[in-house]
Nucleic acid binder design. Structure first.
Lengths: 221, 221
DNA sequence: CGCGGAGTTGATGATCTTCAAACATGGTGG
DNA sequence: CCACCATGTTTGAAGATCATCAACTCCGCG
């Protein structure tokens, strides 16, 4: 927060998770199959995670099954930071996903010994905060069309503006991220397609191309 | 907008802000009248703020006037932290408010010289993040009654469970915090009053007493 | 082939917003 | 001390948006 994160807004750290805690710390690589839980709400927050490939959703649930997805994490992103001893939300792999993990205690030790790159660590937490704050505006004040347009532009940017975008999540995940139902998301996408702002690749529903980013940005407010 | 405030004598402080930057840093005290802007979106993020008395709202606005309040800050809270050079939000005094301010650069220098309590700094950012994440769930997935009940319990806790609670914000502020309209907030409060979960003090609308915190917590999910 | 998961589309309904009116409150000045 | 006005709040009625329920299609896969 207090440090300048400038251009590399989406790049949490300079490359490797180990940089965060100096060269003294080991990382392990883990692989999760599609749909598998990486950690659950209430579990001990023992590790911090960085995605090397794949995609992850972090979310909270209400007792009656309502779910709010806080964020989708893609390649290079880190997640799992906690203040307390337990995770306050859950994380699942959206697709086959590979992660580096590092023990939280390693980072804490490293901090104690002043070998941590504090700037990077704080930048990362602040990025999560800024993303959450942007999302508050979306959830509190945007219409369904605006939410979907915002979502498409966010994914487009994070996937580096590919000509053909492959969404790693289904309609329900998008809906639970945007505070809508999957039907409303589907309807909004159909409207944007009918307005020629995007098109789907053949008969697929997850491979799509943004045809008019400028017009989408107007929807985005 | 520091021009509107009266500068008090420079003095060392104790409490969080001082912990953050060590004992070497000085703070000024400023006072803002009700409704006055403390800083605006896009302005240089030169200072960090801590409330000694009063209350502050931080918020973002869309071009057409829609507003989302991210948080209400009360006595002891800090706000105004940013990653970049500019504020990403605005902040106004809700009531007559006194704040301590410290130059961001002081904290940055202190970090450089390793005199900052890094743990505290990261904890602070993480606390903001956790509040935002809780609020995502509220905005994305809770009904109007649930939102208002959650809000009342949050204020109750932050004001240390007073027998009589004095809200420093009006209905519109509450609505813009909860992603509702002021009418919906008013209706929800009337329902909770009719159900004897709370009562207003006399004919006032901002002084109220929670009569059944347990029942409110059930609404809160 | 048939089955199940994912997505689309339509009809209906609930919740919340919008528009409007009435009332209360608190400060100001005659 | 009271009239007066701006601001804030409540309440009602009507309307819009989104959710729910349901039917159907498409595709992948055993």
């Amino acid at each position: 927060m207090l440090v300048n994160a400038n251009a590399a807004a989406r790049q949490p750290i300079d490359g490797h998770l180990a940089d965060l805690a100096g060269e003294h710390v080991f990382c392990s690589e883990f692989k999760y199959r599609k749909g598998i839980e990486i950690f659950g709400e209430g579990e001990d927050a023992e590790y911090v995670y960085q995605i090397t490939s794949g995609a992850v959703r972090t979310y909270r649930m209400l007792p009656d099954g309502r779910r709010q997805i806080n964020a989708f994490h893609l390649q290079g992103d880190m997640f799992g930071f906690e203040n307390g001893v337990a995770h306050r939300f859950s994380a699942d792999a959206l697709v086959e996903t590979q992660v580096r993990i590092i023990k939280r205690s390693s980072i804490l030790d490293a901090m104690q010994n002043r070998v941590v790159s504090n700037k990077n660590l704080i930048c990362f937490v602040t990025q999560n905060l800024q993303h959450a704050e942007d999302h508050l505006l979306l959830l509190g004040r945007k219409s369904s069309l605006e939410r979907v347009a915002t979502f498409l532009l966010e994914m487009d940017e994070r996937l580096a503006h590919p000509s053909m975008m492959l969404l790693p999540m289904n309609r329900r995940d998008i809906a639970d991220y945007l505070g809508l139902t999957l039907e409303t998301v589907s309807r909004a996408l159909s409207i944007l397609r009918d307005e020629a702002l995007l098109r789907f690749d053949g008969n697929t529903q997850r491979r799509l191309e943004l045809l008019d980013r400028h017009a989408l940005a107007e929807f985005d407010v």
